[in-house]
Every structure is written in C-alpha cells, then in structure tokens.
Design a protein around this nucleic acid. Structure first.
Lengths: 247, 247
DNA sequence: GGGGAGAGATGCCGC
DNA sequence: GCGGCATTTCTCCCC
C-alpha cells in the first residue's frame, strides 16, 4: 500500500503530463456549487480526464453521481487517516471533496484521441427529409427554408401550403409533447405579428404525440402529421436483416 | 499480452460475479438504435458496470461519447486481428460494436455501494422556501399548495394574492427562459378553463430572466419576481440530521 | 458570452 | 408503462 505522499506525486505528475487518471476506491463525496450534495461512503470509480474533468461513478447507473467540469484544479491532501481529493473551480465557485478511505486501484494513462463522433437520425436529418420530400407533410406543401435561424426563431421547416398559406413545421424525432406544441405556438404567433398576417398554419411532425399535446394542438388549430424519422424508416426496411444481426 | 480467449473468460466471469470492468484501450465504436453513430479509432476508457451499463469515455469531456443502458448483453469476439466487444439490447433494438485494436489495461472489481445521494438547492427546495416564506413573492400572498400534482398539472406553488385572486407561481432555480414562460402560461390557462374564472395571475420566480422571456411574460400580463434560491448548506444539514435521526 | 433549442438526453415521480 | 417535468442537465449553434 502506497502512502499519501506517493499518490499525491503520482496525481500531480499525471495531470502535468495530461494523462487520464483512474482511481477505484471507497469514498464519500461532498459537492458545493450550483447545488449542494453529499454521498456517503461506498465503492466508486473516480476518473480525472486530461482536461481535468472529474467524474465519480457508482457501480451502477448511466450517469456520474458527481462531477466537475474541465478547468478544475485537483489536489490530494491527508486528513486524519484518509486521503482527500480536493477539486476546486474558483471561476464557477464550485468545489468537491472526495474523502477516500481505501484505494483499490490507482493508475494513469496518456490517452490520444482526436476523433469526433458522427451521428445520423437527428431532428436535423428529419427536417432535411421533409424538405426533400414535402409530400410527407401534405399534398401541395412547398418548403421554403429548412433549419434556418430566422429573426422569428429557429424554424425546422418553413413553407406554404397548397393555398399559399404560410406554414411552420416543427419536427420531433420521438414523441411530441406539450412542450413541442407551445414551441410551435411561439413560432406561429411570432410570425403572425412580425409579418402582420392573421393566418399562419402550424404543423407538428413526429412519429407520435401524447394525448394532452394533441388536444392542445387542436385547440389552437394546428395539425399533427405522423412522420417517421429517417433512422426508423431504415429500421423498417432492414427489419429482417436486423433480426439476423441481433442473433 | 493476453489472448482474446483469456479476455473473453475474464469478462464473462467478471459480469457473472457482478463486477465492474474497466478497459483502457484503442478502439472504434459503432452504434445503432435510436440513432446511428460512428466514432473512428482513438484511445478511450470503457466501463462496464455491474448492472451491465456500458460507457465509452474519451480522454476529455464530461459525457460518455457512447453508451448502452443496463439490461444489455456483452460479449467479446475476435474479428481479423482485433477484439470486438459486442453489446446488444434486444428489447430496445440497440446494438454497439467496440472494435479494439489495443488493450492498455483490463481489470475488474467487485464494488459495493448502496448509498443514495442527498441533494439540496433544487427547484423543489425553492418552492418549499416560498411556501414557508410567502412574503418573498409579495405582500399578502397566501400559498395554498406546494409542489402538488393537481389535475391542472404540476404547479410549484399555488396561492391567492392579497385581493384573493388565484395565483400560480412557477420556480426556476437558475435563469428563467421562454420555456419557463410558456410553462407558466399553460398552468394559468388550464386553471382559468378548469375553474371557469377569467382572472388567474401568473408569477415567475427565479434569480433572473432572459430579456425575451421577460417581454413575453409582460405581454401575457404575468409578473417576474427575483428570488434567490435557499441557503443550501443549512437545508442539507437539516436533511442529514433528519436522516441520522432515523438510522 | 448569452440566448435558444436539441439530446441516442437521463432520471424521478405519479397516475 | 406513459406522461410530465427537473437536471449541478450538457452540448451545439448563432447572434
């Protein structure tokens, strides 16, 4: 078992070399900043990344139970019989103390990764699909702009219907909810005021919609159109091969 | 350097024993499910938790670049000269392949942690503070309910002002935005319809508010009240001593 | 740097 | 399981 002095040196050197540190330990965690939290003693994995991001993970669950963002300073000190990792972010007025009573594992690696992730099947992809296939909204719908930051706000697809009425299309990649409706409503009202016209249509395009959202949508005279995002359509087409894939 | 066979056995045994696995490696990642993504080769930390949650972390940044939630099955296979971690979630129709070209570190630990985090300074705490100190909203404001799931929706604080007019208070712990205003608007309108009354007041309580949100708020005849969230530490200590008391 | 909106959002609670 | 909503949301984009 190493002493605090050695660990402190190890951490300092690792951070200086921009290495990523992994500590598996028994610890308690106190956080103070945007909120305050306390987590009593248990076994956790502590990650200190090369940009000084700090993550504390419990042995289950998706999200870190505690964290500090980059631009945080880290230091190890001894208090009583325990090692305390003190993380401080003066700018954000945040601080975290990880009181470690036992270290199972401590190591650091120089990790190189300059890659960016590619993602498809987003809401933007859905807007593009509608722009390229306007009949998915309704017969005669003519898109004018797509995913554009206008002075009326960020509108997914803007166009005119077969009668020439200005129409706002708001896309949701999953299930449209009350929030989606109020968002659409904001755009429509803003357009009516800005353009000084009394009639602007609002269409919510999503695979499905909650009952309450549909009621509110209809109360406001807007329409729901069931549109399946590109990703899901692919899934339907590839259903059989996908089933094989999952075997 | 171990062979694929050994790693496969190690992983299988570790998962069977509900251990948490840490792999530091060079890899590329493909994901298919709610969306599709590809991340080209780089150094990453792969965590497989005891509930089969899978996290892939790059050496910088707060969030995992890829992940699979619990109830996922994991397997290691060899393809060409590489080890592939195949994660499959049939129920969610999700899959991930992590193609590993080099393993820097592979280990697993039996981690014990049954602790729950205590957090204070949340929106609920803010609502409670207002309920207990209604003068923070305005003179004569009388709260009726707090953080209650009514049939009108989830209203932070409901009360009557000094003239007996029904008043909805929506709390935001940080900066109120357009969304906060539309949320408040929903509650007010729902109450007016449900109760059949023409006048319901809406108050947005937050430390600050965006200019656009303030404009919309005033357009709709609602009010903004600057409320600073409660002193976190005191509340935390109270909660803590309460918990200690029941131990 | 602030505002606005998406995210493979996640997680919690209530019905 | 769905709906509604907060989150130490985080992140990106655009002004």
């Amino acid at each position: 078992m190493w002493e605090i002095k050695e660990y402190k040196l190890l951490l300092k050197d690792a951070l200086k070399r921009n290495e990523t540190v992994i500590i598996t330990c028994k610890c308690s965690v106190k956080y103070s900043g945007r909120a305050e939290s306390f987590l009593d003693e248990g076994d956790r994995i502590v990650l200190i990344k090369s940009d000084n991001t700090l993550l504390v993970h419990q042995p289950t669950g998706n999200n870190p139970i505690n964290y500090m963002k980059s631009n945080t300073q880290h230091d190890l000190v001894q208090e009583d019989n325990k090692i305390v990792l003190k993380a401080r972010n003066q700018l954000q007025k945040e601080s975290m103390d990880i009181v470690i009573s036992k270290i199972y594992f401590f190591n650091s690696y120089k990790l190189e990764d300059g890659q960016n992730i590619l993602v498809t099947g987003t809401e933007a992809d859905m807007a593009k699909m509608i722009y390229d296939n306007p009949e998915k909204i309704e017969k005669g719908f003519k898109p004018v702009s797509q995913e554009e930051q206008t002075k009326y706000g960020f509108i997914d697809v803007l166009g005119v219907d077969k009668e020439g009425i200005l129409t706002v299309v708001e896309c949701k990649r999953y299930c449209a909810d009350l929030n989606s409706v109020t968002q659409l409503r904001r755009y429509v009202e803003k357009l009516m005021i800005s353009k000084g016209i009394s009639k602007v249509r609002g269409i919510l395009a999503a695979p499905k919609i909650t009952p309450n959202a549909l009621r509110m949508l209809e109360d406001w005279g807007y329409n729901f159109v069931s549109v399946i995002p590109p990703k899901y359509m692919e899934e339907l087409n590839k259903k059989q091969s996908r089933l094989d894939y999952f075997k």
